[in-house]
Write a protein that binds this DNA or RNA. Structure first.
Length: 249
DNA sequence: GCGACAG
DNA sequence: ATCTTGTCGC
């Protein structure tokens, strides 16, 4: 079956991009972009996960993970960690092909009943020249609600938001708003927020702001980065784990 | 041709 | 992304 076919429905996510050429990758992005859903979220979200990867010295082994947080207090309640072999090089605009295979593996390891309402990626959603950043790509493949939070701009133009925390400006490409530059900390470089799939532009900026605490990066992405690094250095083990809630008495 | 360029 | 030391500031 050809994944580029218009009639192909994503049931079992395609996660093997081994040997794909950039031209083929571009074609896949152009085929998937029409499947992105940017309608407003309908239900209130209870949990949100951060997704990220970490690489070993040579960049051959991928340590991937998702950390699920309770939306109320942004505390981690579970995490899923896996390793995978690296197959695709890093090419700006094609990050999805490098990270999605491993992240999908980690996602599928989470029991269906425990899967997060939203997944925040360390990268972009539609803030991409073909509107197909890693968050949108993953969201379409797995039919999940996703968004992106990148540390650097990938596409579009924007004016610097004011130095105050919580201010943001639109990132515009071809006369279209594709995301926002959000100041999460006073006098600190903004982060770039965009919807991935299953939510609107307004939803993405709203959720991002609700996930910011004391740091530049929103908690989901920050925790995901922290956990995959603990995994790479051996402090955490592969698998799906639930975190016991701290009881005070 | 030149500048830009997620992780 | 990863490696790497000190330093400035809350």
């Amino acid at each position: 079956m050809n994944v580029l076919s218009d009639h192909w429905e994503p049931q079992i996510p395609v996660t093997d991009y081994n040997g794909l050429t950039i031209t083929e990758a571009t074609n896949l992005q152009n085929a998937l972009r029409h499947r992105v859903n940017l309608k407003p979220l309908r239900s209130k979200i209870k949990t949100i996960a951060g997704a990220d990867i970490s690489l070993d010295l040579h960049g051959e082994i991928v340590f991937a993970g998702l950390v699920i947080l309770d939306m109320n207090d942004l505390q981690p309640i579970a995490y899923s960690l896996v390793t995978a072999t690296n197959t695709f090089p890093y090419v700006p605009g094609y990050l999805a092909f490098r990270e999605i295979p491993a992240i999908t593996k980690a996602f599928e390891q989470i029991p269906v009943a425990s899967r997060p309402d939203v997944i925040m990626f360390d990268g972009n959603g539609i803030l991409h020249s073909r509107r197909m950043g890693i968050a949108s790509h993953f969201g379409v493949l797995t039919q999940t609600v996703t968004m992106g939070c990148a540390k650097k701009k990938l596409a579009g133009k924007y004016t610097k938001p004011d130095s105050y925390k919580g201010t943001y400006t639109p990132v515009i490409d071809k006369n279209e708003t594709i995301g926002f530059a959000l100041r999460t900390k006073v006098n600190v470089k903004p982060v770039f927020i965009s919807p991935g799939n299953g939510m609107s532009l307004a939803d993405s900026i709203s959720i991002a702001m609700n996930c910011v605490r004391k740091h530049r990066l929103p908690e989901p992405t920050r925790k995901a980065h922290e956990f995959v690094n603990l995994f790479r250095t051996g402090a955490l083990k592969e698998g799906y784990h639930e975190i016991q809630k701290m009881t005070l008495f």
